[in-house]
Write a protein that binds this DNA or RNA. Structure first.
Length: 396
DNA sequence: TCTGGGGTCCTAGGACCC
DNA sequence: TCTGGGGTCCTAGGACCC
């Protein structure tokens, strides 16, 4: 039986949410109606465009480019800083509204959801429901969404990307040839800037060109990615809407430094701050990490990662930090660094399948238990007074 | 390039084991 | 061993998404 899938996509999410936040605080202007972007902090060397108004878009400004470049395209561009905590609040408002229609919602990102409406139509037409959702979001939440309607996720997602803003589009299987095949290959989900030139060099320019190649050819040229793009181009996607919250598979934090530095002490201090955040989140999820990865970016924009499997999984800040510190020392080679980051992976759910033996009294485990207690105390303070209230930074 | 930050998944080579 | 091949683990890097 065919499924009924909706893809909801907030139009210019960061910019729209900043706009209504400003209006609520008494701003006279709606930044959706002027050439404006949400950008990172240029003074902190994070000056890229994160979202743009439709007017800014008309100047040719694209997400991800530098604000410097964007200003050249549009000299009277207004740039605003965003607030990620506010974005999550608006995201939650949308999610709660959508929950009135189905329990089967996958939060694909902060501003995108998939809804499986198959068993929730109650005799109503899917387009009627989509229209009601679209209008209610606009009226009650003051921002707009695009909604894609189809029988699977990839087609619903492609559909929501058609004409914007505040629009509903269907892309049923019998509409693929007319609505999707004429599009440039770069429009296909999962086709990025590296693959497009390769396709072009093979004489493949439109989604139709991909769809009409034979599958074996695509697999031979692009491996599993070739299979995926061939299936997507033909509208094939049997993946489910994942509505049960899954535990993260990795947790990471990274930071562009205020200025490039090769001072290991300074780098370690930042590394500890980042590690504290990572480990805190690990413990909040009841997870233990098995691998630690550090990331560095040199002043010349060369990126490296270095990782190590731990001899024993842990969520103890100190233990993760000690490993990260070693990796950083090995990796940086006295170069001036622009960015450092730390991540943990191969996470183990301690609430399900992990038991710390009470008979484990090796010297190692005594120290481990001591640090575990320290973390627990600090976490309680963070939970009570906020995560920036207390930090180990500089004390290790 | 005056070039963010947080994720997922895949590939490939070398080590190691049978 | 101057030998073959397959499987798994570890590590590094890359593509893609928002």
């Amino acid at each position: 039986m065919d499924r009924k899938i909706l893809h909801i996509d907030v139009n210019n999410a960061f910019l729209s949410w900043t706009a209504i936040d400003m209006l609520e605080k008494g701003s006279k202007i709606d930044i959706r109606n002027i050439p404006a972007v949400i950008g990172g902090d240029e003074a902190a060397r994070r000056g890229v465009v994160l979202a743009k108004s439709n007017i800014a878009k008309k100047y040719g400004i694209v997400t991800g480019e530098t604000i410097y470049k964007a200003r050249k395209k549009c000299p009277n561009l207004k740039v605003f800083l965003g607030s990620h905590s506010r974005y999550h609040e608006y995201s939650d408002k949308l999610y709660n509204l959508l929950l009135e229609y189905t329990d089967k919602i996958e939060r694909f990102s902060v501003d995108e959801c998939f809804l499986d409406m198959t068993e929730y139509l109650m005799g109503r037409d899917i387009l009627t429901i989509a229209k009601e959702i679209k209008d209610r979001v606009e009226k009650e939440l003051k921002f707009t969404v695009n909604i894609g309607v189809s029988e699977n996720k990839v087609l619903a997602k492609m559909a929501s990307d058609f004409e914007k803003p505040n629009k509903i589009h269907t892309l049923y299987k019998n509409e693929i040839k007319k609505k999707m095949w004429p599009l440039d290959v770069k429009e296909l989900f999962m086709l990025g800037r590296k693959t497009v030139p390769k396709l072009n060099s093979l004489g493949i320019y439109t989604i139709k060109d991909i769809a009409l190649k034979n599958l074996e050819y695509m697999v031979k040229k692009f491996g599993t990615h070739g299979k995926t793009m061939w299936e997507y181009a033909n509208g094939i996607d049997n993946s489910e809407v994942i509505y049960v919250k899954e535990l993260p598979k990795s947790i990471s934090h990274s930071m562009t430094l205020m200025k490039d530095t090769s001072n290991l002490q300074e780098l370690n201090k930042v590394l500890l701050e980042l590690t504290e955040k990572v480990a805190y989140r690990l413990r909040r999820c009841n997870l233990y990490a098995t691998t630690v990865t550090i990331q560095i970016r040199t002043k010349n924009f060369e990126n490296y990662t270095k990782q190590k499997k731990l001899s024993r999984s842990t969520s103890v800040t100190k233990e993760i930090y000690e490993e990260a510190k070693k990796l950083l020392k090995e990796a940086y080679k006295e170069r001036e660094l622009r960015l450092i980051g730390i991540g943990v992976g191969n996470l183990i759910d301690t609430s399900v399948n992990y038991q710390t033996s009470i008979f484990d009294t090796t010297p190692d485990s005594k120290i481990h238990n001591k640090y575990e207690k320290i973390d627990k105390t600090l976490d309680e303070i963070k939970n009570k007074y906020g995560s920036s209230s207390i930090t180990l930074a500089g004390k290790m």
